[in-house]
Design a protein around this nucleic acid. Structure first.
Lengths: 153, 153
DNA sequence: CCCCTTGTTCGGAATGATCCGAACAAAGCG
DNA sequence: CGCTTTGTTCGGATCATTCCGAACAAGGGG
């Protein structure tokens, strides 16, 4: 209870800001702080008082985004859900993709703007900066992998 | 009219995904591709067919977020608006702040979760990773500044 | 002192997203 | 073949956000 359900709720509004729905965010929060490392749908429904239909779409979307994995133990009849092995890395990659879409937007802008240099300068800067970031981000992830390994010892 | 208005609209939905409103996003798009580097409110209202009340709140919020600057030429009676000098950098810093809030969320989780190691491990990983990113991000911005200067020559 | 311009605030309408309960599809078991 | 369990889809209700038009404040000429 208690502190935990507060945390779940907080995670809900948190992830909501990132484009997930409230319940999707709550599921993330619950799984992040869960006693077990996976749960089935009825459990999650009861845990956060949500209709199973809503839970169905929430889980499916979390799965599609790559934050949650769906699996089934052999012989079992219902699916179970757990955080993807690389949830955080996944979230970062999503951010990176966002950067790349920004670069794309800048390029679309350059395509429609004329050739007035002053007008192009801003968009070129935008394209270059987001391009730079999209390029460097994977390296940062690699570096994190190394640091993580190092800290583990 | 033309490609440009299409671009403005596209920018609208783009920035909407980032938490701005549609019209706020359109303003960003218009300023990004504008012939002049600033505009006043009536101009923007006419340009994208929006009530001046809506434009008022949109501009104020863009100003508060730091994406747009409000200024007035001496002797003039109405405000003008332009993209902040460091729009993109500003946007990146906002992202970084987001990372830091994530780290905070992880810490709140650690505070409410017990001391079951398995349960703490995930949240600790989350805290460390977002902490790492929040730490490295400013360096990336510095690096971009250098690269930008270098390319300029 | 009055009026005109500029910008903000307020109440209500419209739009969109989310969520629920119920109906539906699929699949395994007896 | 039924029956049960599990998961998805659908229509409608609810809720939040956005936007508009009108009223309101502030300030600067004349």
């Amino acid at each position: 209870m208690d502190g935990v359900s507060g945390f779940v709720e907080e995670a809900g509004v948190f992830y909501e800001r990132l484009g997930l729905s409230r319940t999707e965010g709550r599921v993330m929060g619950w799984l992040l702080s869960a006693p077990e490392d996976s749960a089935d749908a009825p459990r999650l429904c009861g845990e956060m008082a949500v209709a199973k239909s809503s839970m169905s779409v929430a889980l499916r979307r979390l799965e599609q985004v790559g934050l949650v994995e769906r699996f089934r133990r052999p012989g079992e009849r219902r699916d179970r859900y757990r955080l993807a092995e690389d949830v955080f890395e996944q979230a970062f990659r999503a951010k990176m993709a966002e950067f790349d879409r920004f670069r794309g937007l800048a390029e679309r802008g350059l395509a429609v703007v004329g050739d007035d240099p002053a007008r192009r300068a801003r968009l070129e800067l935008m394209r270059d900066m987001y391009g730079f970031m999209a390029e460097r981000f994977p390296l940062l992830l690699d570096e994190w992998d190394r640091v993580k390994e190092e800290r583990r010892r």
